[in-house]
Design a protein around this nucleic acid. Structure first.
Length: 488
RNA sequence: GCCCCCAUCGUCUAGAGGCCUAGGACAUCAGCCUUUCAAGCUGAAGAUCAGGGGUCCGAAUCCCCUUGGGGGCACCA
């Protein structure tokens, strides 16, 4: 599409620093970013920090870090609403001057009592417009009393507001279901409704993509644009992402903060791909899309309307796919910090990169997340394994045959000059035949001896990477543990 | 309580009146491969398209009602 407005596509992501960004917030950021990039528009970052009470220290940094981590780079900002207070106050004053707003002196206590009463009477909680109809005398009395008022919007008493949502279509609200909401708080800060529309207007935002939870406040925003004679942007409400209990995501849902996923070793590209598919799809079969493909194909027409529960298992699968697609060098580069972080302290640092690279070539296709890598690979790094003797004895071979077989293996391998996977395999396979064992049982015992576990990368490659010295040492250790269990 | 939105396999989704005896993906199960694990490949199971009325020659697709779910109703965003 090549409309003339193509050049003025301006999107924004406007989080409030009242907590750490979760999947839902980031999905919103992603869709805004994708839409902007698709149309060659501008992506703006705006911090809506107008709630001084709920402000969380450090939240802004985490928001910025998360966006950077995911590669959702912004073209303008971050703008901070707390630094633009005069703009909102001026707008509030304008609304006041033009009789679209009024001062309200009601105390929080009165409002609370009123709301309780309404709820008790099973009526919708709504401001009763007490201060909307104050006489001049009452006004000057209240003013003289030194009460700091708030500014409320004069919502039209009758009629309705209809707007066209790019995703949900035509939506209508009757004015009498709305109330005279606050625009400017008594601390001088604007509410979301005021600050949001002022900034969207001033920053020439063309499309507002935000979560569906905002759908029902959109008529207020439309009314505000009208009162100010401003052109409203296009609205597109995105379906919600729900927690496992089908409720709005919140802190209580554990690993919902995006930074958690970084810590757990998910790749940005996998996160992006996965999140894009939560509410959007290309067609009936494509699951894996690169950033470029996402940008090229993204469109609001293909955004659905139904809330989605995010499926962690699918994310894990997808992350595994992205992990396997990495070059070995890149995989090593990505996994190194996790090895550093999670390998036991007894493992000497710095880790040897070429050794790590050999190890990880065996680990790469087995990891779903980078955080799993140290777990999967620790036996390559530990000097001495802590064997589970139960495991050794529970092998498919009994203690006696295992001891015998490992002893002979040890003797053969000890003389070996060439230590590579092919040679080891040749020797140990023929030994299997000689001893009249089955590969499954013999290699199984060897695997436990070498790795301390039953599930591990291919035995011979593992032994090759580990090196002769360590392997022989581990065989010996195993024999020592096995010996006491051997009946003579 | 009032208002708004939504409704296809357990989950993410395709489906914009006939191509649907509803397709794909994750997860599950089975088989193959194989020294284990993983990956890969093949296959299976899984949705009376929430229910009920219409409209139409024909409905998952359009309309209405019911039910269910979600969201909103702060001097929070």
């Amino acid at each position: 599409m090549q409309s003339e407005s193509e050049t003025s596509v301006r999107l924004r992501f406007a989080p409030s620093p009242t907590g750490y960004p979760h999947l839902g917030n980031i999905r919103t950021a992603l869709f805004n970013w994708l839409f902007a990039r698709h149309h060659g528009g501008i992506f703006i970052l705006r911090i809506e920090d107008t709630d001084t009470a709920r402000k969380v220290e450090g939240a802004v940094d985490i928001i910025l870090d998360s966006l950077r981590w995911l590669g959702l780079e912004w073209d303008e900002g971050p703008y901070f609403q707390s630094q633009r207070l005069s703009v909102y106050r001026e707008t509030a004053q304008k609304l006041l001057d033009e009789d679209h707003a009024y001062l309200c002196y009601c105390s929080p206590e009165r409002l609370e009592a009123m709301r309780q009463e309404q709820t008790k009477r099973k009526q919708p909680p709504k401001y009763d417009q007490h201060c909307r109809n104050l006489t001049e005398q009452e006004k000057s009395q209240l003013k003289a009393a030194g009460i700091t008022p708030v500014v409320r919007f004069k919502t039209p008493l009758e009629g309705e507001t209809t707007f066209h949502d790019l995703i949900y279509g035509r939506v209508t609200f009757k004015h009498d279901t709305l109330d005279d909401f606050v625009l400017l708080k008594s601390d001088g800060y604007p509410t979301y409704h005021l600050a949001n529309i002022v900034d969207d207007h001033l920053m020439a935002i063309s499309h507002v993509l935000r979560a569906e939870e905002w759908l029902s406040s959109t008529p207020r925003h439309v009314l505000l644009y009208q009162a100010l004679s401003w052109q409203a942007p296009r609205f597109a409400h995105l379906p919600m992402i729900l927690g496992p209990e089908r409720a709005k995501l919140s802190k209580r849902h554990g690993a919902t903060n995006i930074s958690e996923y970084q810590k757990q070793g998910y790749l940005p590209d996998a996160m992006i791909n996965f999140l894009a598919l939560l509410g959007w799809s290309l067609d009936d079969r494509t699951e894996l899309l690169s950033r470029e493909e996402l940008i090229r194909h993204f469109s609001l027409e293909r955004v659905g309307k139904t809330a989605a529960i995010f499926n962690r298992e699918k994310l894990e699968w997808m992350n595994g796919v992205y992990l396997r697609r990495l070059s070995l060098g890149e995989f090593v580069h990505r996994a190194m910090p996790f090895l550093d972080r999670d390998l036991p302290d007894s493992v000497r640092r710095p880790l040897d990169e070429s050794y790590v690279s050999q190890v990880l070539s065996l680990i790469q296709e087995r990891a779903k997340t980078l955080a799993e890598v140290p777990q999967l690979a620790d036996f390559f790094f530990l000097d001495e394994l802590r064997y589970d003797t139960g495991l050794l004895l529970k092998g498919k071979l009994d203690a006696k045959s295992a001891t015998g077989a490992i002893t002979i293996a040890w003797q053969k391998l000890e003389k070996l000059a060439t230590w590579d996977a092919a040679t080891l395999e040749g020797i140990l396979r023929s030994l299997t035949t000689e001893l009249n064992l089955r590969t499954g049982e013999f290699f199984g015992s060897l695997r436990i001896a070498i790795t301390g576990r039953t599930a591990a990368p291919p035995l011979f490659q593992t032994m090759a990477v580990l090196g002769k010295e360590k392997c022989l040492k581990r065989f010996k250790m195993t024999l020592q543990l096995l010996l006491p269990s051997c009946p003579n």
